[in-house]
Computed example of a mutant assay.
Amino acid sequence: MQLERRAEPSRTMLLAAPLGAIAVTLLVTSLLVAWAGAPVGRAYALLLEGGFGSRFAITETLTRATPLILTGLAAAVAFRARLYNIGAEGQLYAGAIAAVAVGGLHGGVGLELHPWLLWPLMIAAATAAGALLLLGPALMKRLGVDEVVTTLLLNFIVLLAVSALLDGPMKDPSALGWPQSVALQDTMQLDRLIERSRVHTGLVAALALAVALWALLRFTTTGFEIRAVGANARAAAFAGMPVGWVTVKVALISGALAGLAGAVEVAGRAHYVTLDMSPGYGYSGIVVAMLAMLHPLGVVAAAVFVAGILVGADSMSRAVGVPTYIADVIVSAALIAMLVATMLTQYRVRWR
């Protein structure tokens, strides 16, 4: 068996790759569902119904999809430039704790500021926290340090730092000993987009940023440089492009999006920071970006799909007794299947 690079992937293969990956994922995980003693067809029907089968299910899916869109965009833009950001989870928490530090008025910060001024300061603090957290690994990459290792390890460092803050200077005194931060002001919280649901206006912001990032990559000089560096950094440098500066810009954009995901999750849903605020949105964002084949608009559809799986798994578990962890298996299997499908769009298998 030999892999032979294709001259140019066909549009049909590019469209079929994510669909094929999803089909293979469902086929493989159906074996686990059957092993658990549940009827496969009914289990998947309940999974679909739990994620999309009612008004409540759809609104919960959209609520879960909002941070996934932002972390998916963060991974997509970074991977486009071959900056492998595995630290979106830590950047999300850094953005969340920075948002609460400003919007929660902790320690008297901003007590005299009007909400119209405090709100942009809160968003700026969250995006800056995420961006600066990725800037270090991006600069270290130029020295030959693998950014996969540094960004991954930073996740644990940030979570430990957040844990220390929640048990120390940022602990809510009214939480009866529970490790959580002070809550945001009511004026800093996002409005509900749909009545009698948890869907908030952060979803609109996430959709707008997906369109904005697509336009940036498609129609601007910066976007062309990002795509060129991702395709071949040495050729881009030979052509006179500032590869190092492009990497820095990508790191700032990617980290800012992940930090914004933390601010939006706090302002729209949680209203304060806890260590279990994110069920792995930063890691799931990588799956979302890969399912979308790093396309910003595709990230939206992929985020809704992954969110539907996570929400629907709860309903399926209660009805047929399948562990809710099957959702994590489906998401992980989807990532592996998508990596294989992406490889097959670039290479053909030759048997000799």
Rank of each mutant, 00 (worst) to 15 (best):
A131I: 11
P169V: 10
N155R: 11
E147M: 13
P137E: 11
A205Q: 09
D191M: 05
R192Y: 07
G230E: 04
S163V: 04
L184C: 03
V162K: 04
L184D: 00
A164D: 15
R198Q: 13
V211D: 03
T222C: 06
L193Q: 04
R218Q: 12
R196F: 00
V148P: 04
A129M: 09
A161V: 06
A205H: 05
P173C: 08
R198G: 13
S174D: 03
R192W: 09
L165N: 06
V229A: 04
R142I: 09
L159R: 08
L134A: 14
S197P: 01
T151L: 09
D186N: 02
D186F: 00
A212T: 12
E195T: 15
I157M: 10
G130M: 07
G202Q: 04
V182K: 01
P179Y: 00
T187D: 00
A129V: 12
L166N: 00
L139H: 07
R196T: 14
S181E: 03
A205P: 07
L152F: 06
L134S: 13
F156T: 15
G168N: 06
A210K: 11
R142H: 10
G136L: 15
Q185A: 13
L143F: 13
A210D: 02
A205Y: 08
N232T: 11
A164L: 10
V149L: 10
L132V: 14
T187N: 00
A228E: 06
L166W: 01
F224E: 15
M170C: 03
V162Y: 03
F224H: 08
D191Y: 05
L213C: 09
G144A: 11
T151P: 07
L143H: 14
N232G: 13
V211L: 12
R192V: 02
L165C: 10
